[in-house]
Design a binder for these strands. Structure first.
Ligand code: SF4
Ligand code: SF4
Lengths: 157, 157
DNA sequence: CTGAATTCGGACCGAAGAAGTCGGATATTG
DNA sequence: CAATATCCGACTTCTTCGGTCCGAATTCAG
């Protein structure tokens, strides 16, 4: 429950890996898969999804592979999840869908929708660039930049 | 992905319903189930879970049923989810478990753990009482109280 | 004391989704 | 042409979720 898909997980890892290697024109799916031990075939399809949604640029043929379509800080974790797992909602009553039949009688769907938006906001505030910068354990002094990057999320239920 | 279990969903609804009827000493599982159209047998087990985790007080026998164990504003949505679905983590690498075998090579588990904490914080800031107050569509003027109740969640990645 | 109402606890099952595999088609380069 | 890639869909396997069923134990009213 409330768990991220492993595919999305892999997608984030791959994207981060690509962000860390800006020098190379393109990295093949197998390259990334081997770097982490992810099943190659599975990662391949994930990267395909990401390209289809405009997060990556692909190039077939020899010396082909994938590269970021935009700057690493222009890609949010939210987009990645959205591209891989489709539109997400923490409850089963996605706006416009017919998933939950007791939507009319339900009294908590509205407040839960706010929670959903809050979580989405959190995900949107995280960029691939943020993931690539993995040295904060002791560097918490420059709160100004961090705050600017991730913002504050106010939950007004 | 990232979806709340329907059981947790039902649990929140039931808890909210109980919070809205403080006059009655106890409400049976069937009462609550009928009020919303939730499968009675299923809700029964959910309520059992909630009692086992100290969120509800049960009373068997005729005129028995369930009642809140604490004040509605002392019960957070986080606790409810925790009681029903067990410890939650947005990724598969729960601290101490052996779910994901590529934990050592993974480089994003640490930042994702922060995201997890942030979301947990959001859930913790929501009480059953908050859910029961369902008239905000036009009443957003008193931001002071709302802000005090739900707080601000800062994501310091 | 008897019986209805109600909680309790586990086993069970079908449907859905997630993780991963396979095979083949297509594009690019050398 | 051959090697390397992306591309794309179908397929299997595994787990979880949602839900049901049944057989207790508990409590209270008459
Ligand atoms: S309608 Fe209510 S019960 Fe159904 S999914 Fe949405 S929130 Fe959960
Ligand atoms: S270790 Fe990395 S890949 Fe495995 S679950 Fe945790 S975050 Fe996802």
């Amino acid at each position: 429950m409330l768990k991220l898909t492993k595919k999305a997980d892999y997608g984030l890892m791959a994207l981060k890996y690509l962000a860390e290697h800006p020098e190379t024109p393109a990295l093949s799916a197998k390259d990334v898969a081997d770097a982490y031990g992810i099943p190659a075939q599975l990662l391949a399809k994930i990267l395909q999804l990401l390209t289809k949604n405009g997060l990556l640029r692909s190039h077939a043929g020899m010396n082909g592979g994938y590269a970021l379509a935009r700057d690493a800080r222009q890609i949010s974790a939210y987009e990645v999840i959205l591209a891989i797992d489709g539109p997400f909602f923490i409850t089963s009553c996605i706006k416009g869908a017919k998933s939950c039949e007791l939507t009319p009688s339900c009294t908590i769907k509205e407040p839960l929708a706010r929670v959903n938006d809050t979580i989405a906001g959190v995900l949107k505030s995280i960029s691939i660039q943020d993931l690539a910068e993995h040295e904060q354990p002791a560097a918490r002094a420059h709160g100004d930049r961090v705050q600017a990057a991730h913002g504050l999320v106010a939950l007004t239920l």
